[in-house]
């Protein structure tokens, strides 16, 4: 039931209000979609009423302080190890949903082994992969997901695929594993995409609660500061470059080890 209020004698439905996040201000840079990911996740937790039945893992990277925002029990992992922590948690707490929030440096570089093996074992966890093609917190260095030609602080002439290979499409890799039951690529650059992202999170939480296998949601995100753009310029770059290289949509909706 929608909440209703009265203002100046007129009745209004509350269309959207802040979920039950903690009161702390998010430290993310203006326009960064990290905050969107966490608030949508919290909305799903609130709506499903599973605060007591979900445990999260924050990474090393921009989402390191996710435990200051999310309102549920959280653990903080070493760089790249979130999926190993999540495996440990899920194996001893099988009735709980378990999620990780990880950036592309954390997940696709230093933590690739932990990520792939968790997916291959079909751990019933939710991997929320924030891919903005750059190391954000470390200061804008090249990541495995950095686009060809993209200028970063460690690829000042643009990423040269001859030196550094092509951007890693992790979602395409993990969809091949029998262990994954849901692999999708989403964005949060407009309201339509943000609503789809929330649906994807709902589905993934459901999968984790019901032990159906690994759910992998890649949020193709932005990084205004790392990209050295204003927030508004970053929205344009996001759509024109990121979404072109990392097309949105479900890569897999059924699976898991039976």
């Amino acid at each position: 039931m929608a909440e209703t209020i009265t203002k100046n004698g007129q009745e209004f439905d509350v269309v959207w209000k802040k979920p039950n996040l903690q009161k702390n201000d998010m430290h993310y840079c203006p326009g960064c979609a990290h905050g969107t990911l966490e608030k949508l996740l919290q909305e799903v937790i609130d709506e499903k009423g599973i605060q007591h039945q979900i445990i999260g893992v924050s990474p090393v990277g921009c989402a390191v302080f996710a435990y200051d925002y999310m309102n549920c029990d959280m653990q903080e992992a070493a760089h790249g190890r979130a999926c190993a922590l999540a495996t440990g948690i899920k194996r001893v707490m099988p009735e709980h949903a378990v999620f990780t929030i990880q950036g592309d440096g954390d997940l696709a570089s230093i933590g690739l082994a932990e990520t792939l093996h968790a997916c291959n074992r079909g751990e019933s966890i939710i991997i929320l992969f924030y891919n903005n093609a750059i190391y954000g917190m470390t200061g804008g260095q090249m990541a495995p997901t950095t686009l060809p030609g993209q200028i970063t602080s460690s690829s000042p002439d643009g990423r040269d695929p001859k030196l550094s290979g092509m951007p890693l499409k992790v979602a395409n890799i993990v969809k091949e594993f029998d262990g994954t039951c849901y692999v999708t690529r989403q964005a949060a650059n407009n309201a339509v995409n943000a609503r789809k992202l929330k649906k994807a999170i709902e589905k993934a939480v459901d999968n984790s609660l019901n032990n159906r296998g690994t759910s992998f949601i890649e949020l193709v995100g932005n990084c205004p500061s790392g990209w050295k753009l204003t927030p508004v310029e970053s929205y344009k770059w996001w759509e024109e470059n990121m979404l072109k290289y990392y097309p949105l949509g479900d890569l897999k909706t059924e699976g898991g080890i039976k």
Partner: peptide
């Protein structure tokens, strides 16, 4: 009882972290 042959010692100790913290 939970048992995982991990992909590496690095991973194993972090699984211990996750489960021990529960």
């Amino acid at each position: 009882i939970a048992y995982v042959q991990a992909e590496s010692e690095v991973s194993a100790i972090n699984m211990v972290y996750g489960a021990g913290a529960c």
